[in-house]
Amino acid sequence: MRLYFKYVSILFKSQLQYRASFWLLSFGQFLVPFTVFAGLYFMFERFGQLQGWTFFEAALCFGIIHMAFSLSECFARGFDAFSGLVRRGEFDRLLVRPRSTVLQVLGSQFEFTRVGRMLQSAIVLGWALYSLPVEWNTAKVTTLILMIVGGVFIFAGIYILMATLCFWTIQGLEIANILTDGGREMAQYPLNIYERWVKIFFTYVIPFGCVNYLPLLYILGKQDGNEWFYMLLPLAGILFLLPCLAIWHIGVRHYRSTGS
């Protein structure tokens, strides 16, 4: 853990070397989800509601998933940018060091400019929380935090899966966008508006629904069934990381037997 912070601090120093670019990029990162959110706002302004969901409910949905996304891009960026690492042949370097590959890859990149994105999500989140008539208690706050954490884990898991793919090919990785960007775009609206196959895929395969839509029902008091069940669903996001890590290790083993 200490080593991870060491990595973070060294990368922070690196990025501060280009100060102007750093601020501009952070601001740009603020703007990207801002326009998307503006789109959501204008759609609600035009249509009033979305299958029983009000603007602020949808905004909460948006805020949570974007928060999770920006955190994961910030922390797990090393896996996201892994294809470059492999192409430059720098993975060999990580293998001759006495630390786990996961930790070293995590430490290889850290995108501070995502702070802009995070700030934007935080504002949306704050606005939605302030405007919604939810009675907050410890259980609900815990659920909210778990939802964000679970989301971070899912995104991180997807990055790891895609990074693993780099051991075999670095072509066609754009498809990963379906899971990351696609998952984000999709999960920023409540899951019930989609077709069945989308719902099933993003609940049982990539459990975005478990960290966003379903526990949100509980927070908003819309759920039917056991409260505890809905509350603990975000843990599915954390569980999702485990198979991803296992696959990563298979990838590393493959790399070490082919060296390509």
Binding site: I10, L11, K13, S14, Q15, Q17, Y18, R88, G89, E90, D92, R93
Partner: peptide
């Protein structure tokens, strides 16, 4: 030491 690659952080 890989002569063609660096293990040092470029910007610090």
């Amino acid at each position: 030491v890989f002569g063609q690659r660096s293990q040092l952080w470029w910007d610090v």
